[in-house]
């Protein structure tokens, strides 16, 4: 949380996964940097969980995570560690995307 003022803390467009601690969280954090080169990625490590976030939109590609993990990876396996996320989710086979979009 960058905002210290609780009354304005909701005025953010942060998006991204909250992962249980472990090797996958590390790999995803690294992949987030690679797959979103124009964005600043924030990593908030709470030991039990790691919040990986950026403004507006974050895309994570299966192949990038695989590369960072150094072993085969199926996108669906992310769910094993995906405890929460901010923003909306779009989970496909080759990527997962978190994004902010105001509907109405």
């Amino acid at each position: 949380m960058s905002s210290k003022d609780i009354s304005t803390a909701h005025l953010n467009n942060r998006v991204g996964p909250v992962l249980r601690q472990g090797a996958l969280a590390k790999a995803v954090a690294e992949a987030a940097e690679v797959d979103n080169p124009e964005r600043v990625i924030a990593i908030d490590d709470k030991v039990a969980y790691v919040r990986i976030s950026t403004d507006g939109e974050m895309i994570l590609r299966r192949t990038t995570i695989e590369e960072m993990l150094g072993q085969p990876f199926q996108m669906r396996d992310l769910e094993v560690e995906l405890s929460s996320f901010s923003g909306r989710i779009d989970n496909a086979e080759e990527y997962i995307r978190f994004y902010f979009e105001k509907t109405f």
């Binding site: 609780i6 803390a9 901010s86 923003g87 902010f100 105001k102 509907t103």
Partner: peptide
């Protein structure tokens, strides 16, 4: 969790 993440999503959905 509630203010930064959840309240935001309320507004996001209209």
């Amino acid at each position: 969790w509630i203010v930064g993440q959840f309240e935001r999503s309320l507004l996001e959905l209209g």
